[in-house]
Amino acid sequence: MSPYIIETGGLTRSYGDICALKPLDLQVPEGEWLSVMGHSGSGKSTLMNLVGGLDRPTGGTLQVGGENLLALTEDGLARFRRNFVGIIFQQHHLVPYLTAIENVMMAQYFHSMPDEAEARHALERVGLGHRLKNRPGELSGGEQQRVCIARAIINSPKLLLGDEPTGNLDHKSTIMVMELLKELRGEERFTVIMVTHNQDVAAWGDRTIHLDDGMLVREERMNCQ
């Protein structure tokens, strides 16, 4: 068993002539919190999509949790995502006509089967026990993001991906969300990969890599804060 949860070798992704990700070798040990930084268009979102099984690389090798993502069919990738990955988006992407708890239960439904008690518990854990029956439109940005977190962790993923999860939040909410993530990570022991261009947010991680124009340009290791 490899100690790394993610292993890439010469990973590339190009859209036509544009090369979004130049050959990249990356290893992420299990349990690490990795921050990915870079300007927009630097390939950081592409990297996250590849690792999360949302997109397919055009070259190289990609092993996530011992699974060769290049060999999976479309449905295989869907199964990989539901069993292995939790995703938090910048725009939250909650289904507008479902209540908070239903949004969480939908993830349960696609994973296996819905369980309302468990979904309620998950929302209580992110501090939304009082807003179960509210639709996303009735929630603040921070609350929406916390629903999104509850949805991402409900299926106990090994890998949590965050695509600028705090990009739309004010400072106070950002701190709240990051604290929450840290706390949950302490309990659930998932690996975190977080894309951000905010130095402060990146500092929450164990390690930060900087991407520029699809290439890894710098890597820094944080010490415990």
Binding site: Q108, H111, S112, M113, D115, E118, H121, I154, N155, S156
Partner: peptide, 14 residues
């Protein structure tokens, strides 16, 4: 203990 595993097992059996 883990909800996801429990659900998976149950859903599989169903």
């Amino acid at each position: 203990r883990q909800g996801a595993q429990r659900r998976k097992l149950l859903a599989g059996a169903l």
